[in-house]
């Protein structure tokens, strides 16, 4: 391939990538998820790959309490919950609690998610939901958006991580940790849903 041709091809590649990225950034997405899984209902199963290509399914974690957070390293509100989520994962790991991150944002590629996760020391699995198929299935619309699933595979809590008003300041009520504690103690979850602001999941 001549030097000129190589430059043309790489230039075109950059142009196409830039345009595609800008379109995604500028347009976001006007579509919304439809069916929303609510507390008491069975959490639909998934088969999604982690950042190293290993496939995970919800069925793999049967008998455990599972915390699923729809996340995005490009959303400050989602990033803001990471220190508390990492701490929660470590605190309850030996009590049979599993934390899983799911990134359904179309513009977020595996490499950038992996780089961020390594920088932040995220040790729990982060799964890439290609084409937001699973987000659509459970009706997830924003990041962060959390589902806490009990040992029987039913949703025990759905909503905000906590009641923060500022992306970087933890809220006063840790909804997710409260739900986990209640499940571990065999008590009902006092607040099974809590709405909160978050960044729209950028869909396909």
């Amino acid at each position: 391939m001549s030097k000129t041709r190589k430059m043309l091809v790489s230039g075109a590649g950059i142009g196409v990538f830039t345009l595609a990225w800008m379109c995604l950034l500028m347009l976001g997405c006007g579509s919304t998820a439809t069916a929303q899984v609510e507390p008491g209902q069975a959490m639909p199963d998934f088969k999604l790959k982690d950042l190293n290509g290993k496939e995970h399914s919800l069925a793999d974690y049967k008998g455990k309490i599972v915390v699923i957070e729809f996340c995005s390293h490009n959303c400050p509100y989602s990033r803001g919950t990471d220190p508390q989520l990492i701490a929660l994962a470590e605190k309850y790991a030996d009590k049979g609690v599993v934390v899983i991150g799911i990134d359904s944002n179309t513009p977020n590629d595996v490499e950038s998610i992996k780089k961020y996760a390594e920088e932040k020391g995220k040790k729990y699995p982060i799964l890439k939901d290609v084409d937001n198929v699973y987000a659509d299935k459970v009706g997830a619309t924003r990041t962060p958006e959390v589902f806490v699933i009990d040992k029987e595979g039913k949703v025990a809590y759905h909503g905000a991580f906590d009641d923060r008003k500022n992306p970087e300041k933890p809220g006063e009520t840790p909804y997710v940790e409260n739900a986990v504690k209640a499940l571990l103690d065999g008590k009902p979850v006092e607040t099974p849903t809590a709405k909160a602001w978050g960044c729209t999941i950028k869909r396909k």
């Binding site: 619309t141 924003r142 905000a160």
Partner: peptide
């Protein structure tokens, strides 16, 4: 969110922009 949903007369789920 609930209060704002009432004032705006729509069901908001917290995802922005809306």
């Amino acid at each position: 969110l609930d209060e704002l949903s009432k004032k705006l007369g729509v069901e908001l789920d917290g995802a922005i922009p809306t």
